[in-house]
Each structure stands twice: as structure tokens, then as C-alpha cells.
Design a binder for these strands. Structure first.
Length: 317
DNA sequence: TTGTATAGCTCCT
DNA sequence: GCTATACAA
């Protein structure tokens, strides 16, 4: 889902770029994006369990494009799902099953063209597909890493450690994780748009002047993110207003509780907010240098013991 | 003005 | 996952 409405809000700081602008550099790539797009070319085969190589070919063509422009790709795959995302996954699964039923019926009545539309809605990227692509990457000596949980946090870590110069993705969450250089909408010719974190203060549609990374992260969580749905009626602009007025999210939530009478804000909302915030800060990632599991940012002393407990399995158990 | 709900898109020629 | 669009509070 990402952060609803974040990218349109950042239009004024978008910069058109081309892969060749990054010649000689390494860019982290969200493997899921290419896996999913590649799966579209062979949705029916994948849904019916028929053997196909098309999604691998598609993926490697993207890799070749990077190499053609002198850019080194560092592919990042998703690992396990966080417990906090289980509900979303279940919802997606049942929607896919519905589409598959419709696709099969159309196929059996000879309407293969219409069936294809439904196959594309039910196609899912499986770990087996990721593994097939990984083998092709190994053969081509392309760097990759499987994140213990979410690719987003893993890519943010690679950038933070200086292992990559920027991140290619379609997911606005990356900016909330604090990434410095994110490239969106990369097309088949190598064109895309770049957003730099340092330019956030220059956004015209909303005033982020003097805003810290913490405030921007809190605004995004309040407006709804993958780890916590928003309070009904709370979008980015309203979230920005209440945070500007009340300074901290605790005070903002307290105020919203008084204003929004009734059961609109659940009793555990503030607790859930804190957990979402900690996930953006301290998600578990893999460190390719030391070959060990670490947290995205150094965990402060007062939290060190807590993050080891089951209470904190939302960071990745 | 702002948020939400819905539909259409990702492949390829 | 994204965007574009129409509609609602």
C-alpha cells in the first residue's frame, strides 16, 4: 500500500532522470516489482502451474539494461511476512482465489482472451519464482540479498551503509524509512523520476519547512501506512496540520480523541502507532558485511532488552 | 478543500 | 504496488 497520496504530494521535487546518470554506481532494486511485472507476461501459465521462463527472461532483460548503462544492480527480495501484515495478506489471498475461479470458468467456455484478464488479477509471486530468478542472478554474477522480512527496510539499510548509491522501487514507504535517493517509475528505456530526501523541505504543496525526519514519519503513520490504518478522515494534509499544531503524536492523538467523539479511535491506537514508528526505525534486516541479523538503526539502550522479547515481534521475530 | 472509493494498469507487438 | 477520476463530507 505504501503511504496513500505521498507521491502526488511530492510532485514539485520530482526530477526526471535516466539510468545513464548513475553510470559507475550501484543501485538497490526492489526485486518484487520486476517479479510482479514479469509475471504478467505469463499469468495463465503460472496460475495453471505450467512451466514457464518468461518472467525470468523479463527480469534478466532489466538487469541487462542496467549493465548496458553502466549501472550495477543490487537486487533485494522480500523474505517473511511481518505478523502485523498477516491480515492484509489473507485479504489478498481470498481476492486472488475469486479471480482464479472466474478465470477458470472463462477458460473452459473458450473465452481465453477474457480469462487472461482474470489470470492477471490472481497471479501471485511465489518464493519458488524468486528462487528461479535468484539462480539466474547467481549465474550472471549479479549481487542480491533476501531480506529477512521486508525489502523496504533492507534497501534502506544498504543505502545507509553506503553499499548502494540509491534505490529503485515503486513504493513510497522508502522515503519514510529515511532513504536519501529514491528512483520511481523506471521504464523499459531507463527513464524514471528521482526524489531526494534532502529536498523534502522544498515541497510546495505542503510546508515541510524545518521538519525533521521524525515528524515526516509521524505524519505518514497518522495518515495510514502498511503497519497501521489511518483514523477515518485522516489524510496527509490533516495529519500534517495536527502534528504542526500539537508538536508530538501523543498530544495530537489526545486532541483527536476529544474532537472525534465516539469509537472512531480505538483504545490501542496510540500503542499501535508507537509500534509502527518502531518498525520504521528498528526493523530487522540482514547485514551482508557481517553476515548477521541487525536492526535498521542502532537500538537505543533503553529499548535493547525489550526488542528481544515476544512483545516486539512486530520488528521481525 | 480534502479524503475515499472505484477502476484500470503492470506484459508485449 | 501505482495513478486517474468521480463523488462525498
Amino acid at each position: 500500500m505504501g503511504i496513500q497520496g505521498l507521491l502526488p504530494l511530492l510532485k514539485s521535487i520530482e526530477k526526471p532522470v535516466h539510468l545513464k546518470d548513475y553510470a559507475g554506481q550501484t543501485l538497490a532494486v526492489d526485486g518484487y516489482v520486476w517479479l510482479h511485472k514479469g509475471a504478467f507476461s505469463c499469468a495463465q501459465e503460472l496460475c495453471l502451474g505450467q512451466p514457464t521462463q518468461k518472467y525470468i527472461t523479463y527480469f534478466m532483460r532489466k538487469i541487462d539494461m542496467f549493465k548496458f548503462f553502466g549501472v550495477k544492480p543490487y537486487v533485494v527480495f522480500d523474505g517473511g511476512y511481518l505478523p502485523s501484515k498477516a491480515a492484509t495478506e489473507q485479504e489478498r489471498l481470498s481476492r486472488r482465489e475469486e479471480s482464479k475461479k472466474a478465470a477458470m470458468e472463462l477458460l473452459h467456455s473458450g473465452k481465453s482472451k477474457q480469462a487472461q484478464d482474470h489470470f492477471r488479477k490472481c497471479v501471485d509471486v511465489t518464493p519458488e519464482m524468486a528462487y528461479a530468478v535468484i539462480q539466474a542472478l547467481e549465474a550472471a554474477q549479479v549481487d542480491f540479498v533476501v531480506a529477512p522480512y521486508e525489502a523496504d527496510a533492507q534497501m534502506a539499510y544498504l543505502e545507509m551503509k553506503g553499499l548502494v548509491h540509491g534505490i529503485v522501487t515503486e513504493d513510497s514507504d522508502l522515503l519514510v524509512f529515511g532513504c536519501k535517493r529514491v528512483i520511481f517509475k523506471l521504464d523499459q528505456y531507463g527513464s524514471g523520476i528521482e526524489i531526494l530526501h534532502e529536498n523534502l523541505s522544498m515541497v510546495r504543496d505542503i510546508s515541510f519547512h524545518e521538519w525533521t525526519m521524525t515528524e515526516i514519519r509521524h505524519m505518514c503513520i497518522l495518515a495510514g501506512c502498511d503497519y497501521l490504518p489511518s483514523i477515518p478522515g485522516m489524510g496527509l494534509k490533516t495529519a500534517q496540520r495536527v502534528l504542526r499544531r500539537f508538536k508530538t503524536f501523543e498530544r495530537a492523538i489526545k486532541h483527536l480523541r476529544m474532537e472525534y467523539t465516539g469509537a472512531k479511535i480505538k483504545a490501542d491506537y496510540e500503542e499501535a502507532f508507537r509500534k509502527a514508528d518502531l518498525t520504521f526505525l528498528y526493523a530487522r534486516v540482514y547485514d551482508p558485511v557481517s553476515h548477521s541479523m541487525v536492526h535498521l538503526n542502532a537500538v537505543p539502550e533503553e529499548l535493547e532488552e525489550l526488542v528481544q522479547t515476544d512483545e516486539y515481534d512486530f520488528l521481525g521475530p
